[in-house]
Design a protein around this nucleic acid. Sequence first.
DNA 1: TTAATTAATCGTAATATTGCAATATAATTA
DNA 2: TAATTATATTGCAATATTACGATTAATTAA
Lengths: 109, 109
Amino acid sequence: MGITKTEIFTDEQNKLALQLKAIAHPARIATLQLIIEAKACICGDLSAELGLAQPTVSQHLKELKNAGLIQGTIEGVSVCYCIEPEAWKNLNNELNKLFSSYKGINSCC
Amino acid sequence: MGITKTEIFTDEQNKLALQLKAIAHPARIATLQLIIEAKACICGDLSAELGLAQPTVSQHLKELKNAGLIQGTIEGVSVCYCIEPEAWKNLNNELNKLFSSYKGINSCC
DNA sequence: TTAATTAATCGTAATATTGCAATATAATTA
DNA sequence: TAATTATATTGCAATATTACGATTAATTAA
């Protein structure tokens, strides 16, 4: 079919998947890194730093924003993007839960 | 175009994106959780637990395996899947780096 | 008001993903 | 060997993603 069966999974699983999907692209990882290091936070600068066209970057920013991971503040004619601290912390926590639940070799293999 | 421009990103960014993409699906998150909790580790059991058809689960397992996150051990007629400890630890480390690089509110916004 | 600057949206082409029925492959058992 | 059991592969339809040119909106400056 081509559409994920979200109804058979928990809200937590679906939310984590959506936020991970938002990060799971090299351009968006690079974007987050640039934003975090404050090397660039407006679309045009990010476009230049990344080497991707402005509409492409705008689209990537939109996805990160839709996932709640960044927020945009209008500053005159441009928009300054930065990390949304709560969502960032929550995602970090969810991932820590997932990764720490693995305690090493288990019974079956 | 529809194809990611991997050549303009670092190997680290591309690898992290690939591994995150492997996890960024509720069925694969659920699969990892089942494997970790050792509630199911063979394709047929996972298929029953997840409520997805066997070929669908087999495909998801293949993607997790291609990303290096799980390994399969042939046990008679079936295959037991479990976490690949090194890759799991590495991904955890990479994510920790990314998340901890954010120190809170920065200058621009 | 007009021009300049910047971001967002639209439209589109190329490609990738999701899910499953049907089938093929591989290993064990009778 | 033949039947059984379990996984993997193939093929396909529906949908989603990626990238960007062209355009539109929104804000500031002249």
